[in-house]
């Protein structure tokens, strides 16, 4: 499994030739073992090493059960690795912090707070004055396309709208890294496409570092600068592929671009070869 198929060697990038970006996240030989039953251990992640450059949009792509979310949780500080270390800006990660903002598939909004209340929560916690936090949050709510819904409660919103609120809530406290855990996985295809477009528009404005977990090949190629392909049992990095497509990316242009199509087809083929992704979504 470690052998790189020769045909795809063109994707393997030895040290990137572009401007030398500085690493913001370093994952160094991280392994994660979960105890599934009294005597059985499950090796969820095996010896993962990965460096993420500041300002890069990196997707972690793999079949379900390959530990890709676990890897994200380790970077978030929500889960401690069994061995190895994850670092942000050279500092070992010991717990969650406002420098890393998560966006979950389950939205995880505070249901007792309105849209505005949810978005203001982080800034208020950081000690931003109420009036200032409100002004910033209103602007963010507008940016994610929810102007007019400020006083709605999460239960009154659709899934896509909830995820927009979750994104705004996380952006509100200015994390340096966005950790997105299959954020569009629970949405229907149409909503999903719209949110991908909107996420790209927002991201291309300020180019925050994004670590994006997904099992969708299209989504990973469309959004990312770099796709980390993982294989399962045990979860390990199979290959890292640079997506060399121009930005800003427009969906209607990109889908017709043969380079985009080649990335998608090649990645799908690589998964098919090991039969790890039956049908890619």
């Amino acid at each position: 499994m470690k052998v790189v198929p020769s045909r795809s060697s063109e994707w393997v990038s030895p040290v990137t030739s572009q401007k030398p970006a500085s690493a913001i996240i370093e994952i160094d030989r991280v392994s994660q073992v979960f105890q599934t039953s009294a005597r059985k251990d499950h090796l969820a992640l095996s010896n993962i090493s990965l460096t993420i450059d500041e300002g890069a949009f990196v997707s972690i792509l793999g079949p379900s059960g390959c530990g890709k979310s676990t890897l994200l949780y380790i970077v978030g500080g929500f889960v401690s690795p069994t061995s190895g270390v994850a670092k942000i800006k050279g500092q070992a990660i010991t717990g969650p912090g406002p420098d890393r903002g998560p966006v979950f598939q389950e939205f995880a909004l505070f249901p007792w707070k309105t849209v505005l209340g949810n978005v203001m929560y982080g800034p208020r916690q950081q000690g931003v004055r109420a009036s200032e936090a409100e002004a910033q949050s209103r602007a963010l709510v507008e940016m994610v396309g929810l102007k007019g819904y400020e006083n709605f409660y999460p239960k009154e919103l659709s899934g896509g709208m909830k995820q927009r609120v979750a994104l705004a809530r996380t952006l509100a406290y200015h994390p340096e890294v966005l950790l997105m855990d299959e954020p569009f996985g629970a949405l229907d295809a149409h909503t999903r496409t719209r949110l991908q477009n909107d996420l790209l528009n927002i991201w291309e404005r300020d180019r925050k570092t994004v670590l994006f977990v997904t099992h969708s090949v299209d989504e990973a190629v469309f959004l990312s600068d770099k796709v980390v392909m993982m294989s399962k049992s045990p979860g390990r990095i199979r290959q890292v592929i640079d997506i060399d497509l121009p930005r800003p990316r427009r969906r209607n242009e990109l889908l017709l671009d043969p380079r985009y199509q080649k990335y998608v087809v090649d990645i799908e083929r690589m998964f098919d070869e090991s039969d790890e992704v039956g049908t890619s979504s």
Binding site: G76, F78, P96, W112, Q125
Partner: peptide
């Protein structure tokens, strides 16, 4: 759990999470 993680990422201590997330939720 993810709601508590979201709070932790915003900087809420475990006591704050109990009072300000677990209690209202």
């Amino acid at each position: 759990e993810k709601m508590l993680w979201s709070g932790a990422a915003m900087g809420l201590s475990s006591l704050q999470r109990l009072v300000r997330i677990v209690l209202p939720a």
